[in-house]
C-alpha cells in the first residue's frame, strides 16, 4: 500500500469528517502544512478541535479554517496574530485552551509515546494549575498534565520518501515531529519527495512508522516579520 499521494486533497481523502481532533504543525507561519490546511478547509469538515501552537494569521494558515467557522476549539500557547480569532473568541463562538508552550510540546510528545500524564513545575501557582493534581517531589511542587492525541496530524517537512521518513528544515521543525507521533493518522506535506535510500538514515528526524500518508506540494512560505540588517 503506497503512502504517496499526488495532491493534498487526495492525501486527506476519506479522512475528514465533523468533530475531529486535528494537530497542525508550525510555529507562527513557519513550517505550517499550508496545502493540507487548505485541503481541510475544502473538505468542509467542521466542529474541529485544532491543536496548534498558533492560529495562523487572517486569511492564511489556520486563519482560513477560522474564516469558514470550521474550528470549534483551539488548543494553543499564543494566538496574538489573528483578528478573526479575537473576534470569534470574544464573541463566544470559539473555545480556547491555553497551554504553556513547553507543556503543549510535552503533552503532544507524551501522547505519541503512550504516556498518559506527567508532572511539571511550569504553571504552578498560576491559572494553568487550577483544578490540576499537585504533587511534591524532593520538596518542590509540580502539577499533573495529560498526554494529547489527535485523530489526524498534519505536518510540513522539507524532504521525505515513500516510506514516510522525514527530515525538516531549520526552525520549520518545531512541533511537527511530536505531532507525527501523536496522530492516529499522520499526513505529511513535503517540499520534495526523494527516492527511498536517498535520505541518510543517520539524519532522519521522523521515522516512517509515524507517517501514514505523504504528498509533495509547493508552499508559499509567507514571512510574518521580515527583519534584515544593513549589508
Amino acid at each position: 500500500m503506497s503512502k504517496v499521494f499526488s495532491t493534498a486533497g487526495e492525501a486527506l481523502g476519506g479522512l475528514c469528517h465533523d468533530g475531529l481532533t486535528i494537530m497542525s504543525g508550525g510555529f507562527g507561519l513557519c513550517g505550517i502544512p499550508e496545502n493540507l490546511i487548505a485541503a481541510l478547509r475544502d473538505s468542509g469538515a467542521s466542529d474541529l478541535t485544532v491543536i496548534s501552537n498558533n492560529a495562523g494569521v487572517d486569511g492564511f494558515g489556520l486563519g482560513q479554517l477560522l474564516e469558514t467557522r470550521q474550528i470549534k476549539k483551539m488548543i494553543s500557547s499564543y494566538v496574538g496574530e489573528n483578528k478573526e480569532f479575537e473576534r470569534q473568541y470574544l464573541g463566544g463562538e470559539l473555545e480556547l485552551e491555553f497551554n504553556p508552550q513547553g507543556t503543549l510540546a510535552e503533552r503532544i510528545r507524551a501522547g505519541g509515546a503512550g504516556i498518559p500524564g506527567f508532572y511539571t513545575k511550569t504553571g504552578v501557582g498560576t491559572l494553568i494549575a487550577e483544578g490540576k493534581e499537585h504533587k511534591d517531589f524532593e520538596g518542590e511542587t509540580f502539577i499533573l498534565e495529560t498526554g494529547l492525541k489527535a485523530d489526524i496530524a498534519i505536518v510540513k517537512a522539507w524532504k521525505g520518501d515513500a516510506e514516510g521518513n522525514l527530515i525538516f528544515k531549520a526552525t520549520a521543525r518545531n512541533f511537527s515531529p511530536m505531532m507525527a507521533m501523536a496522530g492516529q493518522i499522520t499526513v505529511a506535506e513535503v517540499d520534495e519527495i526523494v527516492p527511498v535510500g536517498a535520505l541518510d538514515p543517520n539524519f532522519i528526524h521522523t521515522p516512517g512508522i509515524f507517517v501514514q500518508r505523504i504528498v509533495e506540494a509547493k508552499c508559499e512560505k509567507r514571512i510574518e516579520q521580515l527583519t534584515v540588517r544593513e549589508a
Binding site: 510555529f27 507562527g28 507561519l29 513557519c30 513550517g31 501552537n53 496574530e81 508552550q101 513547553g102 503543549l104 510540546a105 510535552e106 503532544i108 510528545r109 522539507w158 525538516f168 528544515k169 531549520a170 526552525t171 520549520a172 521543525r173 518545531n174 512541533f175 511537527s176 515531529p177 511530536m178 528526524h205 512560505k221 509567507r222 514571512i223 510574518e224 516579520q225 521580515l226 527583519t227 534584515v228 540588517r229 544593513e230 549589508a231
Partner: peptide, 29 residues
C-alpha cells in the same frame, strides 16, 4: 541581509534570522 532571508529560519518573535557555525536545530519538546 536583505535577499538572504529564509522563511524556514525564524526566531521566537517570528523574525527572520541567520545561523552561526555553532548553531543547531531541534524540535519544540
Amino acid at each position: 541581509i536583505a535577499g538572504e532571508e529564509d522563511a524556514d529560519l525564524i526566531n521566537a518573535g517570528k523574525q527572520t534570522i541567520t545561523t552561526l557555525p555553532k548553531s543547531s536545530f531541534f524540535d519544540s519538546a
